[in-house]
Design a protein around this nucleic acid. Structure first.
Length: 420
DNA sequence: TCTGGGGTCCTAGGACCC
DNA sequence: TCTGGGGTCCTAGGACCC
């Protein structure tokens, strides 16, 4: 058996831990720049607020229904995520962290008389120890466990836990599950399936295996097999190294100034380098992109991207910032208002496994010592105490007017020193 | 006025090899 | 009339996830 542990309305639930007065009230958490709703309480969902709905389109509803707004506070959510994971680790020999608010538990070989009681107890323990409501689904495959966890959210009498394994139960549930709610069947496939009369997960399960493989590829086939109770999606016991690291933002206002765009992207470059170092990896390739506002069709549109290759894989902020600045200098078009930009590191290798250059070993070692010192200072005094001068001294150009305090972690500071 | 930010994997086709 | 058969690697685009 596999379990899926899924935090209910995770970001909203984190905010409510410190604001119990918001229990029962519609609450939404907004994306960066307070642009869209990215988490909704049950009350907000009941009002018809959709995932990804832009705030400006629901302003009236928000004030009429007294919806509580929060800017996203990722530092807080990451900390709660860590707390929930620690509860899960105490309950199962193996967990696979799937996202900030979900993890699979490998229950193969676990002796358990009553998985239903196990699921319910885990949910209640999580609530008690972290304050976060958790849904736990247990089933013979990951895809079925996802569906079982979803059931918990709709049926409070399940008390947060659901064990789904008998054939007749599975059939009953799949008959009621819309095909688009199945993990692995997305926006593109669902309408096509519906045209063929496939409306529920059960309809999908009844399709011919060869047809599924031909029309939906091996990924579609995996989902089909999983719905049949045949485990076909592997369990990742070790977190794998990332294959890419992306830092990108939409700015609160368009940037027309070249220097300003360079400073903003230099910040993304620095974040990327820091992430690489924290994971003990190097990148050999960097993609830098900048784009105008795609929602303003009447204004000149620009999208530029440049790929930089490093002869020697690197995690040095100095190297990465320099490359990003050169790329921006090349792709910047005067007169365009840039609304979004970012940096993607790829070609990622482990630092330990990476061969050292015969030619600039000394420079690499110097950069490494400098970066270690900077990281140590920033860890100690709050992030961004020491930055590279070309990042500028300001913050990323964004707005978040409804941010809750960092209840459980301390604030980052503005730079107090720069590296020229 | 105002529209998020990360990721992964698969597939088809082209370029190239012997 | 008729034009091999096998392979690899890379890339772009699509589809999916939270």
């Amino acid at each position: 058996m596999f379990a899926l542990a899924d935090c209910n309305n995770f970001f909203v639930s984190c905010e409510r831990v410190f604001r119990p007065d918001l229990e029962g009230r519609p609450v939404i958490v907004l994306s960066r720049n307070d642009g869209c709703a990215i988490a909704r309480s049950n009350e907000a969902k009941a009002l018809g607020i959709k995932m990804g709905e832009p705030l400006f389109r629901i302003r009236d509803l928000v004030s009429r229904e007294n919806v509580a707004l929060f800017s996203s506070n990722m530092t807080l959510y990451a900390d709660f995520s860590r707390r929930v994971r620690s509860v899960l680790r105490d309950s199962a020999p193996q967990i696979e962290v799937y996202s900030i608010d979900e993890a699979f538990l490998d229950l193969r070989g676990v002796e358990c008389e009553d998985f239903d009681a196990f699921a319910k107890e885990l949910s209640q323990r999580c609530r008690r120890l972290t304050g976060i409501p958790l849904s736990v689904g247990v089933a013979p495959t990951k895809t079925l466990a996802k569906i079982a966890a979803e059931l918990c959210k709709h049926y409070p009498k399940l008390r947060g836990g659901c064990f789904m394994h008998r054939e007749e139960d599975i059939e009953k549930v799949l008959r009621k599950t819309p095909v688009e709610d199945v993990w692995g069947i997305g926006r593109r496939s669902a309408p096509k399936l519906k045209l063929l009369g496939v409306h529920t997960a059960w309809d999908f399960r009844l399709l011919n295996e060869e047809w599924v493989r031909r029309h939906m590829g091996v990924t579609g086939l995996r989902t089909w097999r999983e719905l049949h109770g045949i485990p076909s999606i592997g369990f990742e016991h070790q977190p794998r190294n990332k294959q890419s690291i992306c830092n990108s933002r939409s700015f609160s206002t368009e940037i027309y100034d070249r220097k300003e765009l360079m400073e903003q992207t230099a910040k993304f470059a620095a974040m990327t380098a820091e992430k690489l170092r924290s994971e003990g990896t190097l990148c050999s390739e960097l993609t830098v992109f900048a784009a105008t506002n795609r929602f303003h069709g009447d204004e000149p549109q620009q999208y530029g991207n440049i790929v930089v290759h490093f002869a020697e894989p690197t995690d040095s902020t100095l190297r990465i910032v320099r490359s990003v600045r050169e790329a921006i200098a090349e792709l910047f078009v005067a007169g365009c208002g840039y609304k979004r930009a970012g940096v993607i590191a790829s070609g990622i290798v482990e630092r330990q496994a990476s061969p050292h250059s015969m030619f600039d070993a000394q420079t690499q070692a110097q950069h490494h010592r400098l970066m270690s010192a900077v990281d140590a200072i920033n860890r100690k005094t709050g992030c961004n105490s020491v930055v590279v001068a070309s990042q500028g001294l300001g913050q990323v150009l964004s707005s978040s007017d409804h941010r809750s305090p960092r209840y459980t972690t301390h604030w980052g500071e503005l730079p107090t020193a720069v590296i020229k």
